[in-house]
């Protein structure tokens, strides 16, 4: 079978992403906030929990605005990598830097957002107030309501603004969580299996929503998932992590919007799966 696997770090392929940037800028002309993604460089990243070394030297460059999916068996360290990128855990060794220049650019906490498998909504706050939480330090600003409403509209839940989270379905809750992550116009958005708990149909519509907002806003997206078909459907590039290292770096060149179940994607999915499974056989 022909595979499209490559283990180099291709930066030229991502020129296609640049096509979105000018378009995105036109859409948000009235908003001074820069909506373009941040590039991300990881060098020699290591992380242990006790005696268990989870990440054993990760080197990775993600160009601005790229959609990267990270797949691997459970316990391979993919979620740990995401938590380190999002700044949720402390780094043991190595570095993670955003922006091209060596000196740390002025990066706001609002620039990097995480979305988890659980929606993590405040049950005692109405939908709109939950989205406002995502504004971070801008919560108290005058346009907080308007911005939250705009984000809710983007995820298609404008009519649920005054509901309690407990009356929403699982997919709706996750959309509110997405709205909360988007409301501050983040430049890096990290997803930790955000669709893992949803049923198949809801998952597909959520994938479309994720792709759409990513194309609209141009943030750098990092998606951790155990679902290889989801990874190839959404990402520009799929990283396979095995035993704490990047084992494969696969570029997905399929045109967007992508046709789910197309031969091209299916072939790619098959080759990534066979890699994951062969690693399983070795151990």
């Amino acid at each position: 079978m022909q595979t499209a696997l490559r283990t180099s770090l291709p930066e030229t392929e991502l020129a296609s992403r640049a096509n979105f940037a000018p378009h995105a800028r036109v859409v948000r002309e009235e908003r001074p906030v820069q909506a373009s993604g941040l590039p991300l460089s990881i060098r020699g990243l290591r992380k242990s929990f006790g005696d268990n070394e989870v990440l054993r030297g990760i080197d990775l460059h993600i160009p601005a605005g790229q959609f990267v999916a990270i797949v691997g068996k459970s316990g391979c360290g993919k979620s740990t990598l995401l938590r380190l990128i999002a700044g949720l855990d402390k780094i043991d060794a190595g570095s993670i830097s955003f922006g091209q220049d060596i000196q740390p650019k002025a990066i706001q906490p609002e620039d990097i957002r995480v979305m988890f498998q659980e929606p993590r909504l405040l049950p005692w706050a109405r939908v709109l107030a939950n989205v406002e939480v995502g504004l971070g330090r801008d919560r108290a600003s005058q346009d907080a309501h308007a911005r939250a409403e705009k984000a809710l509209t983007e995820v298609g839940l404008a009519d649920k603004r005054d509901q309690w989270p407990s009356v929403l379905s699982g997919g709706q809750k996750q959309r509110v969580a997405l709205g909360r992550a988007l409301v501050s116009r983040p430049r890096v958005l990290a997803f930790d299996e955000p669709l893992g708990a949803l049923d198949a149909l809801t998952r597909i519509s959520m994938q479309r929503l994720l792709e759409r907002v990513w194309r609209d806003q141009g943030f750098t997206a990092i998606l951790v998932t155990h679902d290889v078909s989801e990874a190839v459907a959404l990402a520009d590039r799929v990283l396979v992590i095995e035993e704490g290292r990047i084992a494969h770096d696969v570029v997905v060149n399929a045109a967007r919007p992508r046709q789910r179940g197309s031969a091209e994607l299916a072939g790619l999915e098959g080759s990534i799966l066979s890699h994951l499974l062969s690693a399983d056989d070795r151990t």
Binding site: E118, R120, V133, G134
Partner: peptide, 12 residues
């Protein structure tokens, strides 16, 4: 604790 972590991430 997941909600507390969420609050911290969102800069509370």
């Amino acid at each position: 604790p997941q909600l507390i972590e969420m609050g911290r991430i969102y800069g509370m």
